[in-house]
Amino acid sequence: MPVWDEVHPATISVQRTRAGDHCFVGYDDDESNWDVLTTFAWTGLARGEKVMLFAAPRVSDDELWSRLEADSPSMAGVRACGQLVLTSMRALLRPDRGFTAERQWQRIREETARARRQGYTGLRTYIDMHWVADLDADLDTMAHRESHAEHLFADGSYSEICAYDRRRFDDDILARMCRAHPVNLLSRLGELRAVHGDTSLRLIGEADLATGEQFCAAVRGALARTAHSRELVVDLTQLSFLSARCADDLLRLVGAAEEHDRVDVRCEPGQLRVLRALGEPGPDRLVLTGTGTRC
């Protein structure tokens, strides 16, 4: 796993993106890129946003429509009404032939305003950064654009994923671009990331059958690491999915952690209901905290 992914302070799964987010994602293979793109697109459509997709220049519109249609039979409707638009960076910048941050910002502001006039709640774009080579853009100019674009997102009407193919950009550029974005995305669906603090464990992504062993290992490791302090905070709020099996494993591991006086599990309402339904081991040890209130 690249170092810049490990240390970014705001890493989430694509399912948890919100209006107004400016996101970096790096991908290692085409399939993971397609999964993030289609999830981001359909989430925006479901929320009443207009969606513009800037695929890699080598990808044809027919291939992109085919990928999107494979996920939903309702493609014809959003395609006909113009809620989903396939375009390119060249088309966005016309009549300019070269890239400047100012021209791109101008056009994005115009497209965001147009989306609102058309009755959509906002605009979201998925921009595959292969366009940088296609337009022979300067990477320093691109880095300036990425790190000075906060005005586009200030009112929550616009959100964007900038997708970088790790096979086409070197590590220094990827690290630089990742730092320039307020939000970093997990690179693929179904991924689980564990972030360890001194007395905390934060879990990001999906805790299910496929990642169950990794989930348990992260919890065991955190409990072992914090045995001397006798307390641990487990943050589940950045999980996009928590299976009943993983929830039960968590309760079992906490129940067996006799060296701990307190394990605070922070969770969202749905997660809280699952954990409560499964039962609470060690009433003096386990604390379930949901929606900002001790439960």
Rank of each mutant, 00 (worst) to 15 (best):
I108V: 10
R109K: 14
V287P: 01
D96I: 03
G48I: 00
R262W: 07
G156K: 04
A227P: 01
D261T: 15
E6P: 02
L185T: 04
L135K: 03
R245M: 09
A137W: 13
P269K: 10
R67A: 11
T43E: 01
N33Y: 10
Y120W: 12
G205W: 10
F24R: 09
G20A: 05
T237N: 04
T38V: 14
M52C: 05
S187D: 15
A41Q: 13
A10H: 14
D136Q: 14
R266V: 15
I108G: 03
E49G: 00
A56G: 08
A175W: 02
V59R: 14
A19T: 02
S72C: 05
D35R: 08
H196T: 08
A10T: 13
S13V: 00
W42S: 00
R97Y: 01
I161N: 03
L174C: 01
M142K: 03
S147Y: 00
A56S: 14
S147L: 00
R285G: 05
E280S: 15
L232F: 08
T100S: 14
V219H: 04
V234S: 07
T11W: 02
D235T: 02
F99P: 02
V59M: 12
I204N: 05
T43D: 03
L253G: 10
G82W: 10
M142N: 10
F169G: 00
R18S: 08
A113F: 09
D29R: 12
M177H: 13
E268G: 05
L232C: 10
Y126G: 04
R230C: 06
T211M: 06
W42I: 00
T17L: 01
V219M: 09
G221Q: 07
F153D: 09
Q104L: 15
D30I: 05
Q104A: 11
V85P: 00
Q271A: 10
E69R: 13
D235E: 07
A210D: 12
L201Y: 06
R114H: 10
S229I: 06
R252K: 13
L201C: 03
I127N: 13
R225I: 01
P269L: 04
A101R: 07
L209A: 15
L86D: 02
G197I: 02
L93M: 09
N33C: 15
Q104V: 05
E280N: 10
R266E: 13
G212S: 15
K50T: 01
G82K: 09
S243A: 13
E111F: 08
D284Q: 13
A80L: 11
E31W: 12
V36I: 09
R114P: 01
